[in-house]
């Protein structure tokens, strides 16, 4: 019977060393960030206990938040605490900052990372909707080079990502909120704090003279992966914001999702509240 103590956790001195290990099946390990998801899954038997793990936590190359021409670049090992308190993130990616502040309690925010949250690939992952609305990129590195993955294509299925076994997520590049646009994040959880979502959503919207120029809206916990609502986004562009529109938005958003029953909520409530949520996100 194996336990977490049997895992050979290795501590690379650099990203290059980690990538070299990951390149070879014999030295490759399960990437381990802050441990807030994986330690639970290993201890509880939800995830199989691997032979090896590679700890990315201390790698300086994976830390930091900076502005680049392509957008805000966020290192993979950036914690939720860093996200919610970074002036840059708060100004340019306010929905992400808001979402990071709803993850677990302070203790979890101090250890949980952006890459860990994404790589866990849970449909209830708190950050995903706020990442998806930016149309940004994830960058994966391997010993043979780097690859940008549009976030829209990153989540491929329930707990599955388009990241190869020899690759590590190293950063996210998220276009900043454009002038004249606004962002919102809202989570409907099981309680006021430390809640896993029943449904959550984020939107980035640009309204000019009362007319919607563009909308990006994303929901979590309503499908095996976090989703955008392309039909609604397409339909809404160019329309005037008024009560009729909001009612139609509610109807269409609700119609576009197909959630399930689970321990936290019901399919019917999720479907209904998805519409309510998207509507609330659009209401100024």
């Amino acid at each position: 019977m194996r336990t977490v103590e049997d895992i050979e956790i290795r501590f690379p001195g650099s990203l290059a060393e980690a990538l070299a290990w990951q390149a070879d099946e014999k030295t490759r390990g399960r990437p381990l960030a802050g441990g807030t998801d994986l330690m639970v899954q290993w201890e509880s038997g939800v995830a199989a206990i691997p032979e090896r793990a590679v700890s990315l936590w201390g790698l300086k190359e994976l830390k930091g938040i900076r502005e680049t021409p392509r957008g805000i670049e966020i290192g993979a090992m950036t914690t939720h605490t860093e996200l919610r308190s970074s002036p840059l993130v708060r100004e340019k990616l306010p929905a992400l900052a808001a979402a990071a502040a709803t993850v677990g309690g302070r203790q979890i925010q101090n250890r949980g990372t952006i890459a860990g949250n994404v790589a866990n690939a849970s449909p209830a992952g708190d950050l995903a909707p706020t990442l998806l609305i930016t149309d940004g990129l994830a960058t994966a590195a391997s010993a043979s080079g780097r690859r940008d993955i549009p976030l829209a294509k990153l989540f491929t299925g329930y707990r599955k990502l388009d990241v190869r076994a020899d690759e590590l997520l190293v950063s996210f590049t998220l276009p900043a909120l454009p002038a004249g646009a606004r962002e919102k994040f809202h989570k409907i959880g099981t309680r006021a704090a430390q809640a896993i979502s029943k449904v959550m959503g984020a939107c980035r919207v640009r309204v000019q003279n009362g007319t919607i120029v563009s909308l990006a809206v994303s929901l979590g916990s309503v499908a095996p992966v976090p989703v955008r609502l392309p039909e609604l986004e397409q339909w809404i562009a160019g329309r005037r914001v008024d009560l009729n529109l909001l009612e139609e938005v509610e109807r269409r958003a609700s119609a576009e999702v197909h959630p399930i029953d689970d321990i936290r909520s019901t399919a019917t409530y999720r479907k209904w509240v998805s519409g309510r949520l998207v509507r609330a996100l659009l209401e100024a």
């Binding site: 639970v40 509880s44 309690g105 099981t190 309680r191 006021a192 704090a193 430390q194 809640a195 896993i196 321990i263 936290r264």
Partner: peptide, 28 residues
Amino acid sequence: VMEKIGIDRKGRFDASRMQTYIIPTMQD
């Protein structure tokens, strides 16, 4: 208003962890 625990198909309590058995926090 929070504490919900049912019986799953195997006859066991379904909300069998603190992640799923929800009790009030200081925020609630």
